[in-house]
Design a binder for these strands. Structure first.
Lengths: 201, 201
DNA sequence: CGGGGAAATCCTCGCTCGTGGAGTAAAATA
DNA sequence: TATTTTACTCCACGAGCGAGGATTTCCCCG
């Protein structure tokens, strides 16, 4: 018979058409970083879910650090969504911010990125810096129309920490009572506290 | 010459006296799990900081999972400290709980354990379960003198999520404005919100 | 004083990881 | 059409990991 055993490996060399391979990799990276964090998501695993050789990731992105940065930066504009919610009546700013922030955790586009950041920031200093940078740019974007007293800074930080805690409890640790609430009732419950931090006595 | 080269390795076999080696290992494990989380802290690194051969850890604790469990369980009684703070006047319960909770994050005995739990719970499901179990036992310990309506459950969960967010912002991510506040002013700022969640309208 | 068990070491196995080099095929450019 | 650039693969290295077997030394109890 001597049938030539097909080596069943994928052919080497460039593919035809516009293979959205780079995007496939970014999608896989986004999902795996979200699931397992920076350290937990291996380049090899990302390559496998993208259906691609690990070396191709190196070809496109250089090293893992850069892949992570690209994944996070390329896919979302988180700060500006918060900034938008700041505009408007001061009496209802708590509700607007709470809704805008928690909504980002509900949407399929943004949730993986936020999960990636949180899962990674908690274990790796590298990612913690990136998260602080994002938060910093948010602060800076509001800096224009508000003077930044220490008092005001502290109020914002407390509100942010509160929202952060709610989001982690709901989407990362999945503490039962909070994970099961609807988005709207959660906003109803939380926004008074946020309003109080931002504008209360 | 033929001087017998001293192999300068540590001698094998049992040590004299009551070498508190087991405790040394637990201390090293506590610190490293706190710094790097479950996955990041390797048995080898723990052994090295304890000044001990990695195999000894296996000898004492079997596997890594068990070492982690022992580290967390053996070293703290977290739930009961919260439970104690619940006793007393209902009008000031927010402040008492806030103070008791945040104080645990400040003390050298308890902080590493909490850090370990958080750092690990965020990336590993195994640790997330343990954390839920601890939170659960806290809930159960209050169950005795309070009926558990959904409403009450939700209030507690929201307050817990808030405190959790503050603690993570302060001790894990170290967001500047919050990390730099003193314990007392932080309690001053946060406890009204906690009081409101627990007993407010 | 002798033997069993506990405390401690060493070395090895099989695995996964990130990175990097070398080669191939297709597309883009000249 | 010839050449260069780009997309893509295979293979290998060196390191670190958790687990476990083999061995040595000491303490304690009979």
């Amino acid at each position: 018979m001597t049938v030539e055993q097909t080596p069943r490996k994928r052919p080497t060399g460039r593919r035809g058409g516009d293979s959205g391979t780079r995007d496939d990799i970014l999608d896989a990276a986004r999902d795996l970083f979200a699931e397992r964090g920076y350290d937990g998501a291996s380049i090899r695993a990302i390559a496998m879910t993208a259906g691609v050789d690990p070396a191709l990731i190196r070809h496109f992105f250089g090293d893992k650090d850069n892949l992570f940065a690209t994944t996070v930066a390329d896919r979302t504009a988180i700060p500006q969504r918060i900034a938008e919610s700041l505009a408007g009546d001061l009496d209802t700013i708590g509700r607007r911010v709470t809704d805008a922030y928690l909504r980002m955790w509900e949407e399929d586009d943004t949730r993986p990125v936020l999960l990636s950041l949180v899962r990674s920031a908690v274990t790796s200093d590298r990612a913690a810096e990136m998260l602080l940078e994002i938060l910093g740019s948010r602060a800076r974007s509001t800096e224009m129309n508000a003077d930044f007293t220490d008092e005001r800074m502290r109020r914002i930080a407390l509100a942010a920490a509160h929202l952060f805690g709610i989001a982690v409890a709901r989407h990362v640790i999945k503490i039962p009572p909070i994970a099961e609430l609807s988005h709207d009732t959660l906003v109803d419950d939380v926004s008074p506290a946020i309003q109080r931090y931002l504008t209360g006595t």
